[in-house]
Each structure stands twice: as structure tokens, then as C-alpha cells.
Design a protein around this nucleic acid. Structure first.
Lengths: 179, 179
DNA sequence: CAATACGTTCAGTTTTTTCTGTACGTACTG
DNA sequence: CAGTACGTACAGAAAAAACTGAACGTATTG
């Protein structure tokens, strides 16, 4: 019957759900809970406040918050007077979504493109060599095909991420239904 | 100068790259390597062959392959004569992409929607109660707004996954550039 | 310029995850 | 219907990840 208590219970459940969900994206429960907590906390928080709230060490708060900052899910804010760093949650989940995939995928994609391209080149050189066994040559040809298929997929993925970053995706999948 | 050896070296490097990439999606190195290996292996493989190839236990192969099957990245194939189960990699990475996100996200999204909806209901009941403190009430109102924003995001995410599953996404982001 | 407050690095501990070998159940073989 | 081959459950070992407290460097304060 206590409103305060009930509000807190609801919040806690929702935070737990958010954390579980972030789990799917490879984010730890603790970090997810921290994000959820910040999301519902209506003022920027210091490391000490987080530590207090979650009952964890300050060290953990420091590294977790940095993690979330790397993902642009949390930002540092300035408030004159306070010597402590203040952090608040990015509230726009569409933006969070976009940043998350840009950050996570881009580097992976380009690394793969580099490796595949280089490998295709090497195998093409290989098959052009006379002294290479026929069996090896045809195996190489198959591999080249597979890597080319992979490259075209990575190109698509890059363009998909482009459409996130440019927000063009919202032209195709609008934020609000039936508009 | 040995073609065989060079081919293998290239393959190994590419497999390692694929594994690293799958890592970004929360898939372990071992499982990623197994997938990569299957991807380049041009025939379906048995657990014993995988075990041999990767130098790991058969138990690991069994669980890893099940993992990949759950993600629809590997399928069991039938070959008469063989008593052993045979597995091969799904080769279409576009399909793999679609399946991966459908499988991973759908359940999470709907769980979140359920929890948020229920929580909004509870808080709305809370704010309608006379005896509730004003401060609590306005905090609840803010929370409700945040959860509604979350719900609209989840709805969008659902529609995004819809566009993956229906392959409508390829209308907007075509598989091949300039077509 | 000492004193204090703050965030972070680092080494060690705890917890979680991954991996393995044995044991078991099922199904095919002769 | 024994004997063998196969995949998997399970418990324990090994490896990896998360977490912590103490120590350190920097910056602010009086």
C-alpha cells in the first residue's frame, strides 16, 4: 500500500528486464542494471551514488560506466560546483540502437573485408600458378567463390549500417506506426 | 611454395576472422571457429570429423553444433548409409543474419513489452489513488512516460525484425549495389 | 604547498563459463 | 538378442570474466 515502495518495486522489475534484454546484445547484467538504473534516475549521478545504489565497488562503477560511454549509452555531463564526474543515461533508444551497431559492427566489417580481399588475392595468385595441383586449384576456386559471397554480404551489412547512421532506415521503418 | 599448405593457411586466417566477427554477436571463439570450418568444408561433417579437425572433445562438438543449430547457422543433413549425424553450415549469410536476429530478439522484445505494459498499468493505478504522496505521483508520471517511450521503441524494433523476416528489408537495402 | 578528494590502474579473489572424460541410453548390426 | 557405435547428460577441471580493495596520480582546495 506504500506508494514509494510500490514505485520502487516496479522500477526494479523494469530495470531487471532492461538488463536481461541488454544481455542479448552481449552486455553484462551488472552493466545493464547500471544503465537501467541511470535511465530511471532523473538526475545525473556520481560514481559514489551509483556505488551506493547498486551496492558494488567504485571500481566496478568506473569501468562499467566507461563501457557504457564507449557504447554511447551514457554521457558525462558538466555541472559547475561539483568536483565529481556526473553521468546520465542516453534516453533516446533509437539513437542508442544506431550507435550500438555502428560502433560494434563497423570495425568488424571492415576488418573482415580486408582479410577476405587479401585472401582472395592470394588464392587467385595460387590458382594461376602452373605447378599447383589440380585438386588444390579447384578447392581454391571454391573458396574464392565463398569469400566473394561473404564480401557481398559485408557490403550489404555496411549499407545497412549506413542506413542506420543516416537515419534513412526510419524512412522505410517509421518510428511511429500508421503515419 | 606448397599449394596445399598455402590454401590451408589462408583458410585458417579467414576462419579466425569469421570467428572474431561472430564474437561481436556474442558467439564464442570456439563455436565461431567451428562454423567457419564447416563453412569452408565442402561436405557435411560428422562430430568425429569436427573433433579431429579442431582437436577438441566430442562433447564440445556436440554442444557447439547444437548451439549453431539453434541459431540456424548449421543444419543436420541425411545421408543414407551413414549411421553418424552429418552437419553442414548454412551458406547464405543473409539468411543467417535474418535468423539470428529473429531468434535472438523476438523473445526479448515481447518479454519487455509484457513487463513494460504491466508496469505502466500498475503505475497508472498508483497515480490515480488519492492517498498517494504528490512527489511519488509525479515520479510515477515521469516513469510512465519513459516506459511509453520504450514501448514505442520496441514496437519499432519488432517492425524492423518483421522487415528482416519478410525480406522486405532487401527492397530498401538491396543485396547488390546499383541494381 | 600541504591536505584532501577524486577517478583509475593493478593484482588478487570470486564467480561464471567453457571444456573434458566417463557413464549412460538408444539404435543399429550381425 | 548380444555386441557395437553413436550422441548426449553430467560432474568435475580448466580457463575466462567479473569484481574488489589497496595503491597511485592528478587536480582542486584552503
Amino acid at each position: 500500500m506504500d506508494g514509494q515502495e510500490q514505485l520502487e518495486r516496479v522500477r526494479e522489475r523494469v530495470i531487471e528486464t532492461i538488463a536481461k534484454n541488454m544481455n542479448l546484445y552481449g552486455i553484462t547484467d551488472s552493466i545493464g542494471r547500471l544503465y537501467g538504473m541511470l535511465y530511471f534516475h532523473n538526475h545525473p549521478m556520481t560514481l559514489d551514488e551509483m556505488k551506493e545504489e547498486l551496492g558494488m565497488s567504485k571500481t566496478s562503477m568506473s569501468t562499467s560506466v566507461r563501457n557504457l560511454m564507449d557504447l554511447k549509452m551514457v554521457e558525462k555531463v558538466w555541472k559547475k560546483g561539483s568536483r565529481k564526474d556526473l553521468y546520465q543515461a542516453e534516453e533516446d533508444w533509437y539513437q542508442t540502437f544506431i550507435d550500438f551497431f555502428s560502433i560494434k559492427w563497423r570495425s568488424g566489417i571492415s576488418m573482415n573485408i580486408v582479410v577476405m580481399t587479401k585472401s582472395i588475392g592470394e588464392l587467385e595468385k595460387l590458382i594461376s600458378m602452373d605447378e599447383v595441383d589440380d585438386e588444390i586449384r579447384s578447392a581454391a576456386i571454391v573458396d574464392i567463390e565463398k569469400m566473394k559471397a561473404a564480401l557481398s554480404y559485408y557490403d550489404w551489412l555496411n549499407r545497412l549500417v549506413d542506413s542506420f547512421e543516416s537515419e534513412e532506415i526510419f524512412k522505410y521503418i517509421p518510428k511511429t506506426k500508421d503515419e
